[in-house]
Nucleic acid binder design. Structure first.
Lengths: 161, 161
DNA sequence: CTCAACGTACAGTATTTACAGAACGATAAA
DNA sequence: TTTATCGTTCTGTAAATACTGTACGTTGAG
């Protein structure tokens, strides 16, 4: 059971607001919020509906959306014909990784911009060279750090899934 | 003059799409796209309207939005009563910095979640400890790297504004 | 003073989005 | 076989969003 106490409600709504800032539907954030503090960690769709007082369709589609984002995963369950979900180990790292990948997309765009300004004055090219540098930096360095974090996470993780 | 050639149009639209993925209006991305390859770098609102075939109101509000995002800045101009804008040195770093700040917001949220699960089994707390670790990492390390990049940028920048 | 150009603010519109509710198909229990 | 439960899909709707066009105030030029 989760989401009865005022503190839990507040937490869930904070996660929802955060997810909204990240471009996800607020309801997806609520589902994620529940799965971050639920006991047990795995909850059925009905549990989530009851807890959030939301429609089956919303919760169902939001759960699948979160699975696609790599933040949660289906959990094996004893009761047949019932879907359980839980937060996915390393979900946040995966989330960050994908966001960084989108950002790194500007790396290529900046290069194409530099092609357009080929042969032009350096002062004109500086804008795009900054973009190139920043996002190449993000693409290379940060990717490495994420991998390092991933290894560290696996090493300290005692909760085998 | 900018935006006449097919390559430029394509570049502008790519930047627009990127900005849309980042949660900004597409038109804001178009304005930014122009200001990334324009010659001269500073363009008036009318220039932008002509180039993008968009309404004054859109371009005006999108320009102010981009100023708020720290990506562009008003440029001093000789013609009175006319607003010029140009890409802002270090704009991308500022952009990244703000995005990271939003992400780091989950750091505090995770802590609040851990308070809720205080005294509970470690297996239950692992989810939030991962969030805590990841976003504390982002908040501390990445902030430092951004600052380092910022210094490096100022050092190599020959284009004094 | 008059007029034209510029930027902003407001109103209108069309598209998208986030959700709820109903209908449907599938499956396990009775 | 019937029935109840679960998940998905489809449809509808209310709200937000992105943009256009118009109206307005302001300022420099004639």
């Amino acid at each position: 059971m989760v989401g009865k106490e005022i503190g839990e409600r507040h937490f869930i709504e904070d996660v929802a607001l955060f997810c909204e800032q990240m471009g996800l539907p607020r309801m997806a954030g609520r589902v994620l919020g529940v799965l971050l503090i639920s006991d047990p960690p795995a909850q059925s769709l009905n549990d989530l509906c009851d807890c959030l007082q939301a429609s089956k369709s919303s919760v169902s589609s939001m759960a699948r959306l979160l699975v696609g984002e790599g933040l949660i995963e289906p959990a094996p369950c004893l009761v047949p014909r019932r879907d359980y979900f839980r937060f996915r180990d390393g979900g946040w790292l995966e989330f960050m990784r994908r966001r960084m990948e989108v950002m790194a997309g500007l790396h290529a765009i900046a290069d194409r911009g530099l092609e357009i300004l080929e042969g032009r004055d350096e002062s004109l090219r500086a804008r795009l060279e900054e973009a190139h540098d920043v996002f190449e930096f993000v693409d290379s360095e940060f990717r490495g750090w994420l991998e390092w974090m991933g290894k560290r996470g696996k090493r300290t993780a005692k909760t085998g899934r």
